[in-house]
């Protein structure tokens, strides 16, 4: 088990291999389909982004509403493959860690290697489990997207498994 602080350093990422289990503490951004589409369009047109992605982690997730007195609702990962179109460009612009569930395209695998990044798999469907790791949640941009808005989360001991490491080692070899 690797207990790591976010944002991950280059050494942290280099030290991770497929199947390693990690516990992450620190801040990560949250964005899914629409956020990816919007960030991608802005990068294509050389427009500025509402966040600086360099060195950061992006969690593919859209939470259920926070009940009164709670920081967030259920907040497990969504399927990463839908982000495959957009991820290589984001990685080329400095994103280092992606967290979601399920396999990625070859283009994403190549971009992970090229940028010395890493793809982590969170436990799919485990919304209540992940809620227990979130200490704060703040909307950063695209509030109109509701559950798909871009968020910044502060997490403690957020569990995940290294799915594709920076040397193309992968758990998806079946």
């Amino acid at each position: 088990m690797h207990e790591l602080n976010l944002p991950l350093t280059a050494e942290d990422i280099a030290g991770l291999s497929a199947y390693d289990q990690v516990l992450l503490t620190g801040t990560l951004y949250v964005g899914r389909d629409q956020v990816h589409s919007l960030l991608y369009e802005r990068l294509l047109h050389n427009e500025s982004l509402p966040v600086d992605l360099v060195g950061q982690a992006m969690y593919y997730m859209g939470p259920s509403p926070a009940p009164e007195g709670k920081v967030i609702g259920a907040c497990g990962p969504t399927t990463s493959a839908r982000m495959d179109r957009f991820s290589p460009l984001l990685l080329d612009h400095g994103l280092k860690v992606m967290i979601g569930k399920g396999p990625r395209s070859q283009d994403v695998v190549d971009a992970i290697k090229r940028n010395k990044a890493v793809y982590l798999q969170a436990f799919g469907g485990c919304g209540a489990l992940y809620a227990s790791t979130v200490k704060s949640s703040r909307i950063i941009a695209f509030e109109h997207l509701g559950p798909e808005a871009l968020l910044l989360l502060e997490v403690v001991k957020f569990p995940a498994i290294v799915a594709i490491d920076s040397r193309q080692g992968s758990v998806f070899a079946y």
């Binding site: 259920s64 259920a74 469907g125 485990c126 489990l129 809620a131």
Partner: peptide, 24 residues
């Protein structure tokens, strides 16, 4: 490890009354 996380998640959902998965 995945199945263990799923079972822990189900216990936590019951304890907190949160949806077991955010995709309701």
């Amino acid at each position: 490890a995945v199945l263990d996380a799923i079972l822990k998640n189900l216990e936590l959902a019951k304890e907190t009354s949160l949806p077991m998965c955010q995709d309701t």
